[in-house]
């Protein structure tokens, strides 16, 4: 009987299962087959034998990378840059949203918003090209610095300024875009709340603190979980288009390291070793995600899961 009714219910939903067939196939091929491919971390990859036929080598690949100083350099850079981004870039979207909310005129507000949002739509190839152009030795920024009598700094090749330069340019690209989600949350605040706060004598600062912020803190918590689980990402597209060997010491992250290891000929190691780095990265990210979710829930916010 039980089986029968389940079958009947499934038949009711048959159209939806049908719709999901291509979707499941897509995920099986492009997500789950690569997931099986992480077994390469424990194998020595041989081109003519493929993933399945290559011989097992236990933890050899991990022993190798853990003794490889460039790996630890990349790991340290990834963590440092991501923490920098969390500290410097993450609050920027919130600040932009809070400040835009304080602007009364809707036309100017829209104009500012558009200016801050549109760089999001450009690729890092384009933005990298622009930055190299204006910051290079013949560039406009160089000319401006000279005009103002400021000391010459080459932001693209100076290891001391390279990380702040990454944060600043990523804020330029993403802060306005990131603000949109907070602005949508702010738009949902009932005007009566501000009204009541005003009646109680709250000035603008206090209104921002006690009315606006509490209504976006839930979104902020969710964004924070996502940002923390992405700590080992570090921003491949940006760094790949801006860095050069002179700043590898401070900017080579796990993703750029893996790419060079795999595809730029001269430092190419086995695919198994690169896969081991990738697995190391995925596992830590997953642990971080679960931890961040747990902590945020403990703090009384709605988590992701």
């Amino acid at each position: 009987m039980m089986k029968n009714s389940l079958w009947r219910r499934m038949m009711q939903y048959r159209m939806y299962y049908l719709l999901l067939v291509p979707v499941v196939v897509y995920y099986a091929v492009f997500s789950y087959i690569p997931m099986y491919g992480v077994t390469l971390s424990f194998k020595k990859y041989m081109f003519n034998k493929g993933v399945l036929g290559s011989p097992w080598v236990g933890f050899d690949n991990f022993h190798y990378i853990f003794r490889y100083s460039a790996f630890w350099n990349a790991f340290r850079n990834t963590v440092m840059i991501s923490f920098g981004r969390l500290l410097v870039e993450f609050p920027m979207a919130i600040i932009v949203a809070l400040l835009l909310n304080e602007i009364a005129g809707s036309k100017l507000k829209k104009l500012y918003q558009t200016v801050f949002t549109f760089p999001h739509f450009l690729s890092w190839v384009v933005l990298g090209g622009i930055l190299v152009n204006i910051l290079g030795n013949t560039g406009t920024v160089h000319a401006l610095f000279e005009l103002l009598g400021l000391p010459e700094v080459n932001f693209l090749s100076n290891p001391d300024t390279f990380r702040p330069f990454l944060y600043l340019t990523n804020i330029w690209k993403e802060a306005g875009w990131g603000a949109i989600i907070y602005m949508a949350a702010i738009a949902g605040i009932s005007p009566e709340l501000y009204e009541a706060a005003y009646m109680d004598g709250a000035n603008r600062w206090k209104q921002m603190l006690h009315v606006t912020w509490p209504s976006i803190s839930g979104v902020a918590a969710m964004m924070l979980i996502l940002a923390i689980s992405g700590i080992l990402n570090g921003g491949f597209e940006q760094i790949f288009n801006l860095y050069s060997p002179g700043v590898y010491d401070v900017s080579d992250i796990l993703d750029t390291f893996m790419y060079r290891l795999s595809f730029s000929g001269n430092v190419s190691l086995g695919f198994g070793i690169v896969t081991a780095v990738g697995l190391f990265k995925s596992v830590i990210s997953l642990v971080l995600l679960v931890m961040a979710n747990f902590i945020v829930k403990r703090m009384g916010q709605e988590g992701l899961m």
């Binding site: 789950y32 690569p34 491919g37 990210s285």
Partner: peptide, 14 residues
């Protein structure tokens, strides 16, 4: 799949 992936090389080979 949002939270775990095979990484660069398995993806490349697939």
């Amino acid at each position: 799949t949002m939270f775990f992936g095979g990484g660069l090389i398995p993806y490349y080979l697939t």
